[in-house]
Nucleic acid binder design. Structure first.
Lengths: 219, 219
DNA sequence: CGCGTATAAGTAAGCGTTTGCTTACATGAA
DNA sequence: TTCATGTAAGCAAACGCTTACTTATACGCG
């Protein structure tokens, strides 16, 4: 009866449970996933989950915690914004990276949405790491370009939200709402088009630019 | 013990259950809401729910069905796009209306998101009525303006998605992700700013416009 | 190196509770 | 009187979680 399976170390097993649970929580949400499902998916006894994580909530926390650490480490995505390329390249690259990452593995996005919708207490840090932080980076970039007279002087936070909005919303529509069943889009085309619209919308017109330069030379 | 309450007619009671259930499903999702909660919220016995709707799924269907009918009827929101105002007014008004409606009652948006995330089978029609249809209206508007030489010739579907993306994403961040706890925004300012960015990004430059007119006169 | 033992990985079984849902009965309105 | 509105009570299954128990494995000791 007993299949003498090789035992895993505590950390390995912990990680395996974490991985399987992440998949399920991302697919069906916290309330929609049972600890029994997770155990079966991981091929282990349910009790192991509780030994490792205390309770279901603890498991969920551990998942978010892990995703946050991964997110903090990979925050260098936003280094794109410091590159010396032109604005169009920077923004199209940023958009393409965000889209590609999410399309390759939508579980993080789904987890974020689920936790925001159904479990606000747990999701605040999640939100800060994956959403608010990115805004701040983009907003800082925008403010710099405004100071340099390249962008119009609009609310940087709002403009940043506008850009990410275009990009992330497109992903959500395609992936979460199933829009991809009706229409497919070329990733590069989407990135370029959206970046282009936003950029033209932000660039200061020549007249504004000369006014800005005039103001500068006064000081 | 018995409080001799006045009885409701079948349709009235049905509607009352629908209303209360909508609130709860919007707040906690399908899996996160129990039929007992709904009964208590409506101040009735649980069995009444099953008499009216068969089972929990039937109740959820009835809610989505009702919301879809309401959505189909109010599709005239998009008539804004046919008004004779200038583009800036049209778009800012559209944005403001979408934002105001959602901020006043976020339950529809939450319901839409929840059903997309956790119950894909039920959500397709929902998606078509509340999302896809709006795209088509805006895309048609864009194509018209492109034909008139006022907008650049970008993919209309994508551009429409970009515009709604900016607006709807802003709402989601504020309301669903709790962004409003960190920063509040003036509704009119948001609408105007986002509409402005998008519009400047879409307008054809004078050189393009003259080229377009040259092409026109050739025919 | 072999070996016994402590320790932690892993399990079977089932606890009390809640879940969606049903049944049998009461009661107000036409 | 009739019949649909409404309820009390509870069922089987599934829920999160615990307990009591095996068993593989790392490791100190001779």
């Amino acid at each position: 009866m007993k299949t003498p399976t090789t035992r895993l170390t505590s950390t390995d097993r912990r990680q395996q449970i974490l991985d399987q649970a992440t998949k399920l929580f991302a697919r069906r949400g916290y309330e929609g996933t049972t600890t029994r499902q997770i155990a079966r998916q991981a091929g282990i006894n349910e009790a192991l989950i509780f030994r490792h994580f205390g309770d279901k909530d603890g498991l969920y926390w551990a998942i978010i915690e892990q995703k946050c650490q991964m997110g903090a480490r990979r925050a260098k995505l936003m280094q794109t914004l410091d590159s010396r390329s032109d604005d169009r390249t920077i923004l199209a690259t940023l958009a393409e990276t965000v889209l590609r990452r999410n399309f390759e593995d939508s579980s993080l996005a789904r987890l974020l949405l689920f936790s925001a919708l159904e479990n606000h207490r747990l999701s605040r840090r999640f939100f800060r790491v994956y959403v608010a932080q990115n805004y701040d980076s983009i907003a800082a970039y925008i403010r710099r370009r405004v100071r340099q007279g390249k962008f119009r002087g609009v609310d940087a936070q709002l403009a940043a939200r506008g850009f990410l909005g275009m990009v992330v919303y497109h992903f959500w529509i395609q992936e979460i709402f199933g829009g991809k069943r009706f229409q497919k889009f070329d990733l590069k085309k989407v990135s370029n088009t959206l970046a282009d619209i936003w950029l033209r919308g932000m660039r200061s017109s020549p007249s504004e630019r000369s006014r800005q330069e005039a103001r500068k030379s006064l000081k």
